[in-house]
């Protein structure tokens, strides 16, 4: 996790580098990051605007809750981010340079180590628990087309 200090240094360094090159960030011709559209779901787990800036906070908080306390809510789970955001081409959030968790970070010179351990692909265990990661993408599909909230019962039907 980058400290505020590191972030400040990074920003300052970037600004200095750009100034030295004689360009302002607006003119800089760096290729803009590709933000692949989420494959599933119509909206993110929080406001898109909020997530763009604060997704790392959301993830940090949730991982401690899950690992230390054992709270297993799906909403802010990294597995769920992957279920929605994995690319249709690579099936992953971090395999190729345009994948969701890579492109922005390359642009902003952020390096994350999450995927040394976490699988980058949506995949679930063999058991067909109606709401587990293995079938969660069905839920998002259902949600996308549904007029009423998707229930566990609806999911149980999908799982069969």
């Amino acid at each position: 996790m980058a400290s505020l200090m590191q972030r400040a240094v990074r920003a300052a360094f970037l600004a200095a580098a750009l100034a030295w090159a004689g360009v302002s960030p607006a003119q800089a011709d760096a290729p803009k990051p590709v933000i692949e559209k989420a494959v599933k779901g119509q909206q993110c787990v929080e406001d898109t605007e909020y997530m763009r800036k604060n997704h790392m906070k959301v993830l940090d908080l949730h991982r401690d809750k899950t690992v230390i306390e054992g709270i297993r809510t799906k909403k802010h789970s990294l597995k769920e981010c992957i279920n929605c955001h994995a690319s249709e081409k690579t099936g992953s959030v971090a395999k190729s340079k345009d994948d969701f968790c890579v492109s922005c970070h390359t642009y902003a010179a952020v390096k994350i180590d999450c995927f040394e351990c976490h699988s980058t692909k949506p995949q679930g265990p063999m058991t067909m628990h109606p709401l587990n990661a293995g079938t969660a993408h069905y839920k998002h599909k259902l949600v996308a087309g549904a007029k009423k909230p998707v229930t566990v019962d609806d999911m149980a039907k999908v799982a069969q």
Partner: peptide, 14 residues
């Protein structure tokens, strides 16, 4: 390095 061979439910790494 485990190179993304992990189970989604069981992250583990170098």
């Amino acid at each position: 390095q485990l190179n993304d061979t992990q189970k989604a439910d069981v992250p583990r790494g170098i």
